[in-house]
Amino acid sequence: MTTDTKPSEAEATPQPYVDLTDKDSAGTRWVRRIAVTSIVVFIGLPMVTLIVWSFAFRWNFPNMLPTEWGGKAWAYVADDSSRVFEGLWNSTKLAFLVTLMAIIVGLPASRALGQHEFRGKSTIEWLLMMPIIVPALVATMGIHQIFIRLRLTETLFGVALVHLIPAIPYFVLVMASVFANYGTALEETARTLGANKIRVFRYVTFPAISSGLLVASMFTFLISWGQYVTTLLIGGGSFVTLPLVLFPFLSGANHANAAAISLVFVAPAVIVLIMTSRQLGRDSSVMGGFGKI
């Protein structure tokens, strides 16, 4: 018999919501054109300006392009006295350390929140969200006092600990959503098939959460990467990261140097985005996590 009477069988024909052969109305196309143009202009213009400025030697008002070009700003960046490379190295070490710590601390917690029901769950959720809801300034200043006693100021570890505070909520938001979306059925199946806990994680859990973990790690990395005031306070000015190197130039007159350092500051971040861009757009549970406070 060839008849198929399974009641849950759904129509298998692809049904694209907006097919290219369907003509959109003129209004829709205009709205779309305006939106895309504003994305290109508003998002692209500041970045393009930075690139052009970093190669400008002389660029006075009202010229639309530099009247003299040159690599002076980049030479300055490469010079040890600018401390750009020291900042880059410190920022990188720091961001990786914070990401690692966030994974170790945050992964089990995300799993508990995403997949288990227990008493006091919403309290724990709120508690873990506190650092992104309560302005962190007072806590940072308080921690500064504590760290002075513990001799953690001006150390990599001390700064990393403080960066970990805002990193945890973001990490947990994303990963709890990923865990909740993926559920426990697959793992339970693997267990009944005789896989031990380590193998279940290696062959079932990890592949399922890896793209979400990549995005969560990216957010954690970037949170640490962009921190200014916490590093300034806990690092005490002697632990120099890129934002600390950049900051004085932003209110100064040497726009070319500011632009070049800004670009050094943004480059690794953009590489991270290119690596994770597909995940950001594809798995709706990843970004959707931020919509679930």
């Binding site: 500041p46 300006t49 930075l50 950049l246 932003l250 726009h255 500011a258 632009a259 971040a269 985005l273």
Partner: peptide, 17 residues
């Protein structure tokens, strides 16, 4: 998506210019 990984300070830097 580009602004997502860009630090606030760099954004400020571009906006200033």
């Amino acid at each position: 998506q580009i602004p997502i990984p860009v630090p606030h300070l760099v954004a400020a830097s571009g906006i200033i210019l």
